[in-house]
Amino acid sequence: MDTPAELGSFLRTRRAGLRPEDVGLVAYGTRRRVPGLRREELAQLAGVSVAYYTRLEQGQSTGASDGVLDAIARALRLSPDERAHLGNLARPPRAGRRPARRAESARPATRRLLAAMDGVPAVVLGLRFDVLAWNPLGHALIAGHLPADAPEHPDDRPNTQRMLFLDPHTRELYPDWKGEARRAVSSLRLVAGAHPDDRRLAELIGELTMKSGEFAALWSRHPVRRCAFGTKSFHHPLVGPLELDFEMTRLPDSGGQALLMYGAEPGSPSEAALRLLAREAVAFYAP
């Protein structure tokens, strides 16, 4: 990933999203040539020179201090996730030879945990959103149209980002597909900023940009948000509508792997539908 270019693009999108009156500046009636704040206005708000901010936005300045980045983040009204992303882009790791990443795999203890989570759809995701493992209900919920052993093939594993944008079955699973797509790209942006030298991650982003105009349009807007919990709506082909809470927990010492779990409100129609889906999953996996 071209980190200097990404930094400049990120800063410009955030600067364009603010009007002078949003940050307490006087907006005169003259026609503005650029949307949002001008560079000199942003520099004034952040307390840095226009020349320095310009170099930063053009990717010509590295090693900005925490104080400077915090000031720019405050001026741009960045969220905590966006501030973290700004730091990753402004101070990328030094280039150098890095050992090739091995194919990811879920630890045996994690697999045992999945097997013990009866009635809870659960999926283990890798750093690049590859599905490393799922329990029967997790498989039935998000990808029942795929083989149950699909995560066991490292060269052709399901990838939740690729599925969302390129698999029509997955698209039909989400009534609010656009909202789910924004959430997915927001998470992918954070990971890409933290791992700019990951070749396979860059290849995934390149593939999605080339094959999906919707992904390309979302990616260009630089959405950034860590989507670790919330609620998702499903329209499942077997059990119909589902409204499920989700939690994504980072697994310690796993190189960025996460455990994604779903649950329904007790006594709700979604809980009943989830129980029905669990029975279908048990029947599917029965020898």
Score class of each variant (00 low, 15 high):
Pro92Trp: 08
Glu40Gln: 10
Ala46Asn: 04
Arg55Asp: 09
Val48Pro: 00
Arg74Pro: 01
Ala75Leu: 02
Gly47Glu: 09
Ala43Leu: 06
Ile72Asn: 02
Arg55Cys: 01
Thr30Ser: 14
Arg38Gln: 08
Tyr52Met: 11
Ala43Ser: 09
Leu42Arg: 05
Arg55Gln: 15
Tyr28Thr: 15
Glu41Trp: 01
Glu40His: 06
Ala64Gln: 12
Ala75Glu: 09
Ala71Glu: 01
Gln44Ser: 14
Leu56Gly: 09
Pro93Gly: 08
Leu76Ala: 08
Gly67Ser: 14
Leu89Gly: 04
Pro80Val: 11
Leu76Glu: 03
Val50Ile: 11
Asn88Glu: 14
Arg33Gly: 12
Asp66Trp: 00
Tyr28Leu: 14
Ala64His: 02
Gln60Val: 02
Ala84Gln: 14
Pro35Asp: 13
Tyr52Lys: 01
Thr30Ala: 14
Leu78Val: 09
Gly59Asp: 03
Glu82Asp: 03
His85Tyr: 15
Glu82Cys: 03
Arg32Trp: 10
Gln44Ala: 15
Ala90Met: 10
Tyr53Phe: 13
Arg77Glu: 10
Glu41Met: 07
Leu89Thr: 05
Tyr52Thr: 02
Arg31Tyr: 04
Gln44Val: 02
Pro93Met: 08
Ser65Ile: 11
Arg91Ala: 11
Ser79His: 02
Ala64Val: 14
Tyr28Val: 13
Arg39Phe: 02
Arg77Gly: 14
Arg33Asp: 12
Glu82Gly: 08
Leu86Asn: 06
Gln60Ser: 01
Arg31Ala: 13
Gly63Glu: 03
Gly63Val: 02
Glu41Phe: 03
Arg83Trp: 00
Gln44Cys: 05
Leu78Phe: 07
Gly47Ala: 07
Glu40Tyr: 07
Glu41Pro: 09
Thr54Met: 06
Thr62Trp: 02
Asn88Gln: 15
Gly47Tyr: 06
Val50Asn: 05
Tyr52Val: 00
Ala84Thr: 15
Leu89Trp: 01
Arg77Asp: 06
Ser49Ile: 07
Pro80Ser: 08
Gly29Cys: 00
Arg31Ser: 13
Arg74Trp: 01
Ser49Tyr: 00
Thr30Gln: 15
Ala73Ser: 15
Thr54His: 08
Tyr53Arg: 05
Ala27Lys: 14
Leu78Thr: 10
Gln60Pro: 00
Ala90Asp: 07
Val26Lys: 13
Pro35Ile: 11
Leu45Pro: 05
Ala90Tyr: 00
His85Arg: 03
Ala90Leu: 04
Ala64Pro: 09
Leu56Val: 12
Leu56Glu: 00
Gly87Asp: 10
